[in-house]
Simulated assay, not measured.
Amino acid sequence: MSDFFVRAMSETDLPDVLAIERKAYAFPWSQKGFENALDQGLNFVFENLQKQIIGYGCFLTVLDEATLMNLCISPDYQGQGIAKSALKQLLEKLQDNFQFIYLEVRESNRPARNLYTKFGFSEDGIRKNYYPAWIKKDGVQTEGREDAILMSKRLRNI
């Protein structure tokens, strides 16, 4: 699907962004987390032609490095190629000002890991017990932890 565009996120977008976040994740960011992201980084929303927010991306930036903190497509729009197109557009926006991009992704999130690999990200390591997660053991679901896979990509050479 290419019938959407990427624009800067604003504070007025937060109710829609939070609704998507809560629908997509078992352990969503808080409103304060998104407010901090707006204060500290580069943040984008993905809007369809009806001006409905269907996803977002949040980056923390330091000098010539960008860290992808959150990339999310509404569950209602997943499986349509939006994440692939959105990531392509975001990388194009970042390549002139940043040399490297970093991210962490849940070890269990195979679709995201495959997407990042297709875009040239390499797996650099593991951050043990990084994410909160629901763990099922002996038929009982309890809160546990999941490893993060560290990934990076060089956007441009010096």
Results as ranks from 00 to 15, higher is better:
47 E>F: 12
64 D>V: 11
80 Q>T: 08
63 L>A: 14
44 F>S: 10
40 Q>I: 14
46 F>K: 02
59 F>C: 04
91 L>G: 00
82 I>T: 08
53 I>N: 14
70 N>S: 04
60 L>E: 10
68 L>G: 10
71 L>W: 01
64 D>A: 09
93 K>N: 12
49 L>R: 15
58 C>L: 12
76 D>Y: 10
61 T>M: 02
84 K>Q: 11
78 Q>L: 01
73 I>Y: 06
83 A>V: 01
74 S>M: 05
75 P>D: 01
89 Q>Y: 04
57 G>V: 11
52 Q>I: 13
92 E>V: 06
55 G>Y: 09
48 N>T: 10
58 C>K: 07
95 Q>T: 14
85 S>L: 07
57 G>H: 05
52 Q>H: 15
81 G>H: 09
77 Y>C: 04
85 S>I: 13
70 N>M: 03
90 L>S: 05
76 D>Q: 14
80 Q>C: 05
79 G>A: 04
85 S>F: 08
71 L>C: 03
51 K>N: 15
68 L>N: 07
42 L>F: 11
89 Q>L: 03
88 K>C: 11
94 L>N: 06
53 I>F: 14
72 C>H: 00
66 A>K: 00
73 I>K: 03
85 S>N: 13
41 G>N: 11
53 I>K: 14
49 L>F: 13
88 K>L: 09
93 K>Q: 14
43 N>E: 07
76 D>W: 07
